[in-house]
Every structure is written in structure tokens, then in C-alpha cells.
């Protein structure tokens, strides 16, 4: 039974995207990857559900990069 929510949950999705973009403004790809790694850990702990985390990892891995 899927627990991962992929429906949009932000009232203003553009504002959420901008927050993520502005967090990496001026960073190199590598520095942004470090930031993202910390973000992943923080948000994973906030979710606190191993099933959701496993599903999210599967979705991220299975998506074809463009």
C-alpha cells in the first residue's frame, strides 16, 4: 500500500520552488549537492517513516533524467 504522497501539497508550489532555488543561488554544483544531502537528511527525519522514505527513493531512482 503506497504511503508516499505525490499530489501537490503546497498552497503555492512556485513559492516552494523559489525557496529551493534561492537556497542554491551562487553555489557550485558540488556545494549545491552538499546542501541537498543535508536537506534530504533533515526532511527524511521530519517525515520519520521508513516506508515513505523507501518509496521516495524508488521514485527518484526510477525517474528518467532528461
Amino acid at each position: 500500500m503506497a504511503k508516499l504522497v505525490t499530489a501537490s501539497r503546497f498552497a503555492d508550489p512556485d513559492a516552494a520552488y523559489v525557496a529551493l532555488v534561492e537556497a542554491r543561488r551562487g553555489l557550485t554544483v558540488e556545494a549545491a549537492a552538499d546542501l541537498d544531502a543535508k536537506l534530504v537528511l533533515i526532511l527524511a527525519n521530519h517525515i520519520g517513516d521508513i516506508d515513505v522514505l523507501t518509496e521516495a527513493i524508488a521514485l527518484a531512482r526510477n525517474v528518467q533524467d532528461r
Partner: peptide, 19 residues
């Protein structure tokens, strides 16, 4: 390049995830 990665990740997820 760092911002483009984030943008391209959104585009990659778009067909599979409504958010």
C-alpha cells in the same frame, strides 16, 4: 548549473508526480 539541476529534476519528476 546548480539551479539547472534542480529545474531538470522537477521536469524529470513531472510525468510521474503531480507535485
Amino acid at each position: 548549473a546548480a539551479e539547472r539541476r534542480l529545474r531538470d529534476a522537477v521536469l524529470a519528476l513531472a510525468p510521474r508526480a503531480e507535485f
